[in-house]
């Protein structure tokens, strides 16, 4: 299996966008080497602004640049954009619905060695509760590239979530990308697995395991958390016996709760959530942490069997 960084998809798209549109600017807060925005800086030094270690000013200043007609991509780690600069995301960007793109890397438990201080498992919840905010969590390198283009091509604030590590390349999610439109990767009638972000690969592996046990499995990849593709969710609720959600994020506030809310209000069916429990992470290897915190295909299978049995 090929592995590639989702943040590289972001960085590649930024350079492509830089060549197409001179209104595209990139900002970073002293993590340009880690977010890979230094690659944009190398090509467009005059359209790159390193704000130093000041995420709050970066996001409000990005709002100022958007007011002047630019398309700023403000980049930092997920935990800093949402937790450190949550007010600026809310008051400077979301409230006036400005055309700022917040591209964040190092999200989820797979940050690895840096530990809980840097492992952003809450950011989807924080971003999706902001009115006007579009929230996209791409599944692999190529989808990250496509999502970044899509974000640039829409008017309004977007939160783009990427990881630190290299993650499996999943050809099933390549091709087209439409914000707010989930991708049905497999059709099935017994149970639905809804994934977001890098857990799409685990979702597909889980589906294979379940199919080998004789179950018909639908896999829906929900790359956009907001606006949520409620039709795809309700179709799954109507046509299969239940839903397992899978995300590299807390089970609180993220995809799982979003899906459960839609289903409970419109067409109740069993929902099981795979995600980080209500706990902080710790240091470790990226891959071993995904095992330790229960974010693997066997965890999805286990939850699915709970519904199916």
């Amino acid at each position: 299996m090929e592995y590639k960084a989702t943040k590289q998809g972001y960085a590649d798209a930024l350079r492509e966008l830089g060549r197409e549109n001179e209104k595209v600017l990139v900002m970073d807060a002293d993590v340009a080497k880690a977010t890979l925005t230094e690659q944009f800086e190398a090509e467009f030094p005059n359209r790159f602004f390193n704000c130093g270690v000041q995420e709050q000013n970066m996001l409000s200043a990005a709002a100022g640049l958007a007011l002047e007609g630019f398309i700023p991509f403000a980049s930092t780690f997920g935990v800093f954009a949402t937790c450190r600069a949550g007010d600026q995301m809310r008051s400077s960007i979301a409230y006036p619905k400005l055309n700022v793109k917040i591209g964040v890397t190092h999200c989820g438990i797979s940050v690895g060695g840096d530990g809980a201080s840097h492992q952003s498992n809450e950011d989807i919840g924080m971003a999706r509760t902001l009115p006007n905010m579009t929230v996209i969590v791409p599944g692999d390198y190529e989808e990250s590239r496509l999502a970044t283009h899509a974000a640039a091509n829409m008017e309004g604030p977007v939160y783009l979530r990427f990881g630190r590590d290299k993650y499996p390349v999943v050809p099933e999610i390549h091709g087209s990308f439409e914000i707010g439109k989930a991708k049905t990767l497999r059709n099935g009638s017994d149970i639905t697995i809804i994934t977001t972000g890098i857990l799409v690969n685990e979702g597909l592996l889980a589906a294979t395991t379940l199919e080998e046990k004789g179950h018909s499995v639908r896999v829906v990849h929900m790359h956009t958390i907001k606006p949520l593709d409620t039709e795809a969710i309700l179709q799954a609720a109507r046509e299969t016996k239940g839903i397992v959600t899978a995300e590299e994020h807390s089970i609180l506030g993220g995809l799982g709760e979003a899906v459960a809310g839609i289903v409970a209000e419109n067409h109740p069916c069993p929902v099981q959530r795979v995600g980080v429990m209500d706990t902080f992470g710790e240091s470790g290897q990226s891959q071993e942490l995904l095992d330790l915190y229960g974010l693997r295909a066997p965890d999805i299978v286990e939850k699915a069997l709970k519904i199916l049995s």
Binding site: L25, F49, Q56, N57, L59, S60, A61, A62, A63, G64, L65, L67, E68, G69, F70, D87, Q88, S91, S92, Y95, P96
Partner: peptide, 22 residues
């Protein structure tokens, strides 16, 4: 510019000022 929570206005202002320079 939208303001209200304190500190964001001056940041938005310097962002606009940078935009004007560009």
């Amino acid at each position: 510019a939208c303001t209200g929570t304190l500190g964001i206005g001056i940041s938005t202002g310097v962002g606009m000022a940078l935009g004007a320079k560009l």
